[in-house]
Simulated scan of single mutants.
Amino acid sequence: MTKQRLEGKRVLVTAAGQGIGRASALAMAAEGAQVFATDVNAEALATLTGVETFALDALSDDSVTEGVARANPDVLFNCAGFVHHGSILDATDDELDFALDLNVRSMLRTIRAALPAMLERGTGSIINMSSACSNVIGAPNRFIYGTTKAAVIGLTKSVAVDYMSQGIRCNCICPGTVDSPSWQDRVDQLGKELGSKEAALKQFVERQPMGRVATAEEIAALVVYLASDESAFTTGHPHIIDGGWSGQ
């Protein structure tokens, strides 16, 4: 492997302000890519260095169209998403509509915008953020999240099979629990329900066979691989990186 595994590639990342998106943007830049890191939160983007940043709202057709045209990516990493808590009896129609829009339809927007130029060049790698909590494994009180992330796997397979003969690869990543600001928020919320943050952390960690949650950088390493030509024969698959959670 060469040191600069992504040299010459233009990369667009959504939700790059924190967590996996941020770690992946930095990791791909370190491998020589020209990274366009985007987020709806401009303040979060302002702390990123070594990449080009601009605000992009994955819920807006116009914003996505403008952002993709600006980045003209060889690699598209769809990382935007939200985790709702609760079972099917807790889920509201508004919550489900929002999750479908952000967790699934946002990827349709970016892929539709980026795919024509990729097809014209005859090459492109699309990476979608799914989850081990999907059709891979069920997780308690994650009805909306698991439903939408299962849809991402179906979306990924469909795009892959339609365009694999034209130089386009499409894969998705299925992490287990990852230490990130959004996860810390969920820990805090569960801690309020259980009476302490320590009890919440214990509940999250106990379901991980390795006895810990992942770091964002560990997921970013897989993103780099799928973005690079090292994965040129890899398409149409959910890549599970969950510390053995789904293998129990």
Rank of each mutant, 00 (worst) to 15 (best):
T65A: 11
T92Y: 11
S130K: 08
R186K: 15
V178N: 08
V152C: 06
L226K: 13
M1C: 05
D62M: 09
V136Q: 10
V136L: 12
D61P: 11
G8M: 10
L100S: 06
I127G: 01
S228A: 05
L108Q: 04
T14M: 02
V205C: 11
S106M: 10
H239Q: 13
T147W: 14
D57S: 01
P140T: 10
N171H: 06
S228E: 05
T53G: 01
D94N: 14
V13G: 03
G191N: 01
S158G: 12
L201I: 15
S63P: 02
C79E: 02
T123W: 03
I153C: 02
A139N: 08
L190I: 10
K9E: 02
T49F: 03
G124H: 02
R186W: 04
G21W: 04
R5K: 13
T14V: 04
R5L: 13
A80C: 09
T110E: 02
C172K: 14
G86W: 02
A232K: 11
M1I: 14
T65G: 02
G211H: 07
V178G: 06
S87C: 06
V187P: 10
F204V: 15
G243S: 15
M28Q: 01
S131M: 08
Q208G: 04
G8C: 09
V83F: 13
T147A: 12
S246C: 11
D242P: 11
A44I: 10
T148A: 08
A55C: 04
N78G: 10
A151I: 08
L6K: 03
R207N: 11
K197P: 05
T14K: 02
C174L: 14
G243F: 06
A114D: 04
A232W: 04
A71Q: 00
S106Y: 01
G244H: 13
A214R: 00
I153T: 00
L6C: 12
A71C: 02
G236H: 05
M118Y: 02
K149L: 14
R105A: 05
Y145E: 11
T47Y: 01
D101F: 10
R207G: 07
I137H: 15
G243L: 07
Q34A: 07
F54V: 01
K192R: 15
I137C: 07
S106T: 06
L89Q: 05
L76G: 00
N72S: 13
R207C: 14
D62Q: 08
A199S: 12
V159Q: 00
A42R: 01
G243Q: 14
L26G: 00
G138S: 07
V205K: 03
V104G: 09
Q184R: 15
A44N: 15
R169I: 10
R5S: 08
T177E: 04
G19I: 05
V187E: 06
D61E: 09
A71G: 03
T92L: 12
G191R: 08
A25P: 00
E66V: 00
K197W: 01
E217D: 13
A216Q: 03
E95D: 15
Q189E: 15
S182Y: 12
V161E: 11
S106P: 09
L119D: 04
A25E: 03
K202W: 08
E52F: 05
C79S: 13
T53S: 01
L119P: 12
N72G: 11
G154K: 01
A71S: 11
D179I: 05
N171E: 12
E206N: 14
R112N: 07
D162H: 12
I219E: 05
L76C: 00
L12T: 03
A114K: 03
D162F: 06
M118D: 13
